[in-house]
Nucleic acid binder design. Structure first.
Lengths: 361, 361
DNA sequence: CTGAAAGCGCTAACAG
DNA sequence: CTGTTAGCGCTTTCAG
């Protein structure tokens, strides 16, 4: 049955003041851990609180000028597990600090975006985390001018004024490409991400750089413009493999694209890695679960979320005199079973049919 | 540079009262759309509001007894896109109603769960949405007794006391299995989900029921216990296909499992659907993007989120006299390319290599 | 060490 | 139609 008590008269600071025979300002002091309080008084108050099941009213607290203990999270949408991983990191850090998380999706309402940021600034949250924001310029000013704490995630800050956290995309792409070159590939295809994203640009740079470093000439026909989704990976691989002189390896700008490549390869009766080596980027959980397990560049997504949150909290809680700057996290090449030497392929023996050992993180 | 203005003196109701030459209660009335207000006064006030860029302080509002305009969302974790789809639906409904969304993850802190629900009840949110809660019993009472509005998503309510929304899991599984039987399969394998979830149980029921309805004897050896993850699908398919008399079709309890089946089939040098037909459940976006595109049972995930939210809002905003009950949404069999008649297989011609037309929703 | 008192910004009677 | 007046629950001076 549904009780109709719209908000049962919660126990307030006053109740526990009465209960423990002190004034309610003393109770407040106890709650906020003030120094000069007689231990026994504190004891008595604490006791009453647990006895009456007191829970502070967050709204009253925020009203009187303090923090709301909430941080806002602005994301584009819940594509893939990429975002999920980041949120996990954020969630941990947020919980640790006893803050709460407010979720905002910009999903198909571009227009509202900047306006809501303003309203956010006025009360609901103490700070804002923006994951891979599309047109940040739109509200970066608003945010900055108001001195409202915020941190960007997975955005390549052009000026160090902008507090942000991202991965070493270029280095990661460089490592992956170099790896392919080292094991003997000379024709290495590349499928880009959505080029409006900085990370996509940086990965392309890394690819080119590694090519140059390996004395391999860059060939435009080996680069296919993708969008970070699986179907474009499929399309791209088909296109690349149809070339007169097709690549022996394909480096995909993220794991989803790599899965699309897998499909195209199979679809043409070829095999990974014997006929076409594949390397991805991100290392989403699925990467270790597919067959062959995917060699990929691990991006410390969770840690990015975590660190960004910690930066934000520092900004919120301390009175900083200087900008937070930006943090770049290292990537790591995770070698699994989807790439091998082109010369090896003849001798390639099918690996174990079971998922590889690191299948679950 | 970082401005240190900790919360710039926001324009309040008083400022705009002064500005427009009325008392601040009149301003409040305008804001809250009261009836008896002289049009020109309203105009004047509205004008001042836009001019000064007024934004109501939500905390003050909630404090005085009203709503917080926030609803809480409790989820287990950000697995797969299943949860993402649901959240999208929730997000839409929430935005429409001008509420905000507070996110809670129970991820590896089982213990805290019930305690935080209580604290939630005391202020931060007006209602709670719980997606596929694990041990609900723990706090269902707390919630119910406090008359705190909540709605369960993807939970098979045993009593209609519990407001909830879920899909017709059994019917969906029945349809899928029947479809396979209809196109000629007699040995149909089944890989279950995590059996602690109601949906997993219901899907198994539907499978059995369809078998019975088609005059096919149920065989325990054709059922493999999975957990909704891809790797168990792989394992399960390997196990089923190793039987002396292997199934000609496999019905997977969700799409991720189906992808695992795909892999196992390929890994054994077999093909989908020529050698093994596969049907999934959920219809996550990827289902249309893989090759062959996956025949699956569409669960209206987004709509579930949407409807649950609407139910919750009704509970919050109207003073209901009776429980909301539970809503069950229909599923739909989406026929794509991963299943065919076993007799067809000989004549099977490879389909178009391009993603099927409905690849993007 | 602790109490009294003044608001934070807003809504909701209660009087005009 | 509109102004006055209480608070909502809590933090924070300011006095003891």
């Amino acid at each position: 049955m549904i009780t109709k008590v719209r908000r049962s008269p919660n126990t307030t600071i006053k109740d526990i003041a009465r209960e423990s025979g002190v004034s309610y300002s003393t109770v407040s002091r106890v709650i906020n851990n003030f120094e000069h309080i007689k231990p026994e008084t504190r004891e008595r108050v604490m006791d009453a609180m647990t006895r009456l099941g007191y829970v502070a009213n967050q709204h009253a607290r925020s009203l009187v000028g303090g923090r709301s203990q909430v941080i806002g999270l602005l994301i584009h949408a819940f594509d893939s597990s990429y975002i999920g991983q980041i949120i996990q990191g954020i969630d941990e850090a947020v919980a640790e600090a006893h803050y709460d998380l407010m979720l905002y999706t910009t999903h198909r309402r571009k227009i509202r975006e900047s306006s809501f940021v303003v309203s956010l600034a006025r009360g609901l949250a103490d700070g804002l985390l923006l994951v891979l924001p599309r047109d940040i310029e739109a509200y970066l000013d608003t945010l900055g001018q108001q001195g409202f704490p915020f941190v960007l995630i997975d955005y390549a800050a052009t000026s160090s004024d902008v507090p942000s956290v991202n991965a070493a995309n270029q280095q990661g792409a460089y490592d992956a490409t170099l790896y392919l070159a080292k094991i003997g590939h000379r024709r290495i295809g590349f499928i880009t991400g959505d080029m409006v994203a900085d990370s996509a640009q940086e990965r392309l740079m890394g690819y080119k750089q590694a090519l140059a470093g390996s004395g391999i000439a860059f060939e435009a026909e080996l680069v296919f413009q993708g969008d970070f989704y699986q179907s474009k990976g499929f399309e791209g691989a088909n296109s690349l493999l149809s070339l007169d002189n097709p690549p022996t390896a394909i480096f995909a700008s993220n794991d989803m694209i790599a899965f699309g490549v897998y499909e195209a390869v199979r679809n043409r009766g070829l095999r990974t890695p014997e006929d076409v080596s594949v390397v991805g980027f991100d290392d989403i959980p699925q990467a270790a679960q597919v067959h062959p397990s995917l060699t990929t560049v691990r991006q410390p997504l969770q840690e990015m979320g975590r660190i960004a949150t910690q930066m934000l909290l520092r900004w919120i809680e301390e009175d900083l005199d200087e900008p937070l700057g930006y943090t770049q996290l290292a990537t790591e090449l995770i070698v699994r079973d989807s790439a091998c030497s082109p010369v090896d392929s003849v001798f390639y023996r099918s690996r174990s049919a079971m998922p590889s050992s690191d299948e679950r993180r």
